[in-house]
Simulated scan of single mutants.
Amino acid sequence: MPLAPPTLDTFSRTWTAQILAAPPMILPTRHFTYPQLVPGEEEALARGAMLLNVQPRAGGNFLATCSLGFKDRSLPTGVFACPARDEMLAVAGGYAYLVNTLTPDRALHIQLKPVVAIAAVSPSDEEPTGLLLLAGFHNVLALDANGIRWESARLTWEGLSMTDIAEGKLHGTGWNMMSNRDVPFTVDLKTGAHEGGGFQR
């Protein structure tokens, strides 16, 4: 099954979100900035931010200011539904924030930096709530309805491609520096254990 990029409709959700071009004239009562105070991220807001007006199923709307990881336009930026219906994934310049819209003060700043690609595994008999797959330069992370299910080991020296899903495994390729070629890999969707890949010394 070929992988598809996620949309707001890939998973059912209890919230709505609108990307704003500028701060609203009247700020909502609730306003959250991501990442929260984290050592090493003091300059994140200086790079810019994605602004979201979020309406959860309870608690009233809030403004989310999602700091850009990088200004590189090739990196993903957007808001995505998650396998957990109350959660949203906000990605800004490759920085990913997993936000429970009912408790937005406790967002998780995902440590995969930067996220360079996002793919969805739609709900099915095998994966009842589905998965979101986030790829970095070297490995892949999976989100399910309970949060982070797994983060794979290193799959490549630099750069990887996720191509398709078959028999419960993610298939892709990772670059091997010694041979200067892409090497196929598989990652078990249940455990994150992998076979193959380009990171072979």
Rank of each mutant, 00 (worst) to 15 (best):
P83R: 00
A135E: 10
L108T: 15
L134M: 12
L134F: 12
A120P: 10
V79Q: 06
A81M: 02
V99C: 01
D72G: 00
G94E: 04
D125M: 07
L63S: 09
L141K: 06
G60V: 09
A92D: 06
C82F: 00
A117G: 13
F80C: 11
S124L: 05
E126Q: 13
A84I: 02
R106A: 15
A119M: 12
S124W: 06
F70G: 00
F80A: 07
Q111Y: 09
A117R: 15
L108W: 04
K71P: 00
N146V: 00
A58M: 03
H138C: 05
K71H: 05
A81E: 00
A81P: 03
A58F: 00
L133T: 10
N139Q: 15
A58R: 03
A119Q: 14
V121C: 08
P104F: 03
H109L: 10
V115E: 10
A119W: 12
G130L: 03
G147W: 02
D86Y: 00
L102V: 15
V99T: 06
G60Q: 05
L133F: 08
F62C: 12
E151I: 14
G93K: 05
V79D: 03
P123S: 08
D86A: 04
N100S: 14
L134R: 07
S67V: 06
A90I: 10
L112A: 11
A117C: 11
H138S: 11
D144F: 03
D144A: 04
D105V: 13
P76A: 10
V79M: 01
L141N: 04
F70T: 06
N139I: 03
F80H: 13
L131V: 02
H138M: 08
A142R: 08
I148Q: 12
S67Q: 12
G60P: 11
L133A: 10
L132T: 00
F80M: 09
N100H: 09
H109C: 12
L98D: 02
R85G: 00
L68T: 02
N100D: 15
D144E: 07
L133W: 04
L68G: 02
A81G: 14
F62T: 13
F70Q: 11
F70S: 14
I148A: 04
G59V: 07
R106P: 02
M88R: 02
F137V: 11
A120D: 04
A64Q: 03
A119Y: 14
A64P: 10
L134P: 13
L89C: 12
G130H: 02
L131K: 09
V79R: 02
G147L: 07
A92W: 03
A96S: 14
L68R: 11
A81Q: 01
L68W: 07
E151A: 13
A81K: 01
A96P: 13
